[in-house]
Simulated scan of single mutants.
Amino acid sequence: ALYTDAKKNLSDAIRFACEDFLGVFVAFDGEIISGTHAVKLKTRSTDSFKSINFPTVADIKLGKITYNNALSYGEHWDKFETHVLRPFKVKTDLCEDIFVLKIYPGIKPDIFDFIKEHYKGVIIESFGIGGIPNENHDIVAKVQELAEAGLAVVITTQCLYEGIDLDIYAVGKRLAKQKVIYAGDMTTEALTMKLMWALGNYEKLSDIKTFMETPFFADRNY
């Protein structure tokens, strides 16, 4: 390619890695984005990655790092761990038996039977703030079957911003009564890896639910 932003992105990443700041981050187009909030929105542009539901951590221009003042509001700084009291340890056990299901109008219940037989966890991308079509087929009942079968069922939204709230509509309230995991405002990308790790390191669904719904390094705001 005649032009590539790879050199600058790599240089920015190395510079920020030298900072006394813990976590996983994406250095792209002069911005430092919390890894759990980074989503690629464009295929060709140099500003293709954006931070979803969280301020960018810092900007890098001409090699100078400037932290975002917006982190001072909403207790954003407090969500990062600035020091570790125990030795660093890598835990790489992952369970890849998960399914990401995007709800669509007219979805048939058979897919839930397939998921129940072949997977240990599922991330369900609902409509809006937590809606699931339930007129022609009792999809909520199928979700309940998954939970009762011992699957880790995560409910999230197809919308990028602002997250879910199952207490708004009747269908959501029915889901809330099940043993589902609230995604909050996490991205599907972050949920996928977090669920894979949780299933690989915990056996009890209660422990998996607690881990998934607990913020780590600012991966969720609620």
Rank of each mutant, 00 (worst) to 15 (best):
N134H: 06
N136P: 00
H137N: 15
H137G: 03
H137Y: 15
D138V: 09
D138T: 08
D138H: 12
I139V: 14
K142V: 01
K142L: 00
K142G: 02
E145M: 11
E145P: 02
E145I: 00
A147G: 00
A147T: 15
A147C: 15
E148T: 14
E148N: 15
A149V: 09
A149N: 09
G150W: 13
G150M: 13
G150C: 08
A152C: 07
A152T: 03
A152H: 07
V153D: 01
V154T: 01
V154S: 01
V154H: 03
I155W: 03
T156F: 03
T157H: 08
T157Q: 06
Q158N: 12
Q158A: 12
Q158F: 01
C159M: 13
L160P: 13
Y161I: 15
Y161D: 05
E162F: 09
E162L: 08
E162H: 10
D165W: 03
L166H: 01
L166F: 04
L166T: 03
I168S: 01
I168P: 07
Y169C: 06
Y169W: 09
A170Q: 12
V171D: 10
V171C: 10
G172P: 01
G172I: 09
G172T: 08
L175V: 06
L175D: 02
A176C: 01
K177A: 13
K179V: 00
K179E: 07
K179C: 00
V180Q: 04
V180R: 03
I181F: 04
Y182C: 10
Y182P: 00
A183H: 04
A183E: 07
G184I: 02
G184M: 03
G184F: 05
D185T: 05
D185S: 11
D185H: 06
D185A: 13
M186L: 09
M186P: 01
T187Y: 13
T187W: 12
T187C: 11
T188V: 15
T188S: 12
E189N: 12
A190I: 05
L191F: 10
L191E: 14
T192W: 08
T192S: 14
M193G: 09
L195Y: 06
A198H: 06
A198G: 06
A198P: 06
A198C: 11
L199S: 07
N201Y: 15
N201M: 12
Y202L: 03
K204E: 15
S206M: 00
S206H: 07
D207M: 09
I208D: 04
